[in-house]
């Protein structure tokens, strides 16, 4: 719990903090107001849920892998080796 009195957050402010909330990095000074608002405001709860789903979707994407640089760089690696480093 926090010692700070809960200054009410607007919906807009809540959405701006939603990403930090989902990451668990929301500051103590705002945590209480955020939770209070979220419990009472279904549209904000839906927004936060959607942000969570969005992040999950992004996390499931394949990363950047593989490259046409491999052959060329491996060639340089062999030269680097034979040059004795």
């Amino acid at each position: 719990m926090t010692d700070h009195p809960h200054h009410p957050l607007s919906c807009r402010q809540l959405t701006e903090h939603s990403s930090a909330f989902l990451e668990g990095t929301l500051g103590d000074e705002i945590w209480g107001s955020f939770k209070d608002h979220l419990e009472r405001c279904p549209p904000c709860a839906e927004y936060v849920r959607q942000m969570g789903m969005t992040v999950e979707l992004v996390r499931r994407l394949p990363g950047d892998r593989g490259t046409c640089a491999r052959a060329e760089l491996v060639d340089r690696f062999r030269k680097w080796r034979s040059g004795g480093g």
Partner: peptide, 12 residues
């Protein structure tokens, strides 16, 4: 091993 490292990190 070097080629794999390149594939893994070069694009990033």
């Amino acid at each position: 091993a070097f080629g794999d490292l390149v594939d893994e990190h070069h694009p990033t």
